[in-house]
Design a protein around this nucleic acid. Structure first.
Lengths: 156, 156
DNA sequence: CTGGGTGCAAAAGGTTTGCAACACT
DNA sequence: AGTGTTGCAAACCTTTTGCACCCAG
């Protein structure tokens, strides 16, 4: 339970990178929010709120480091801010995201259904896929329920 | 052949928007480069190079307008700049992109292979997909050939 | 004519960088 | 001790905005 940082510590050590307090803090925030997709600004302000005088520059630098070492993955929702999430070390490549156009919720989806498309890319274009980013935009269950309810109310 | 702008003109008219010279120019550049994915900066500098004193602000405003009316689609390759491309009016939703990690080339792919994933999203999460953005990162045919050639050379 | 559209320049984000001070190893 | 890291602030880059002027309808 307390060893969640071992992947990180090991990766740093084997690359002769330093295990600093700031890096641990950032990794900790990502771990605590591993089911969420935090923006850089959110990560920074969580730490500032806790009394850490960490600078934004360090947050950016550390996140870039984590991404480079494939310990975190970057998610760009085309709304102008980049989000980060710890990357599951078991994943072959990145998972998919369902983005609700109403409430903004992001649902992670594990799926190998892209295998077919990857094969097609190779067959038809000679393109060898190494990673993919799939974002499906639509309306989540809760928002659909909410909307069908208010539709019924407005009909009265 | 000369009527490629009719979709655009019609859409403007039916929304009582004005058919200005600048809008025509921008639409023209997108049409000439319809197989490419131009950044805002590229579109702007193409026009400036041709002697048009158009401002970046207008380019941004017009592209936003085109996107809003689904005449163009925005592509965000997570490299900090947004790209635009005219949208095929027959497409159900956006097509997929194969992005080469070596040369940066972007290949468009039409495919309905996402239908399976969309059904899965609905079945498992109650999530109704309305659009999707799929980017597959990998290595294109040409770069693979080039690399295998230089591999062989370095072996000598 | 009249209001939508444009150019300009300033402002507003978000992200990067140079440099001196700091702190892991 | 030595160098990788950090904080700070300035620089950067892309995108947005306010406003006076302009032009399509």
């Amino acid at each position: 339970m307390e060893d969640y940082k071992q992947d990180f510590e090991q990766e740093l050590q084997s690359n002769s990178l330093r295990l600093t307090g700031q890096r641990m803090l950032i990794y900790g925030v990502l771990w605590e929010n591993r089911e969420k997709h935090l923006t850089v600004e959110e990560i920074h302000s969580i730490l500032v709120r806790r009394g850490s005088g960490i600078s934004v520059a360090t947050v950016y630098r550390t996140l870039a480091l984590l991404e480079e070492h494939r310990l975190a993955s970057r998610l760009c929702l085309d709304d102008g801010c980049v989000r980060y999430q710890l990357q599951d070390q078991l994943e072959k490549h990145e998972h998919h995201h369902l983005v609700c156009e109403r409430c903004g919720k992001v649902i992670d989806v594990m799926s190998d259904m892209m295998d077919g498309i990857e094969q097609q890319a190779l067959d038809e274009y000679g393109f060898q896929v190494r990673n993919h980013r799939v974002k499906l935009y639509g309306i989540c269950k809760e928002c659909r329920l909410k909307e069908s309810k208010s539709d019924k109310l407005s009909m009265l």
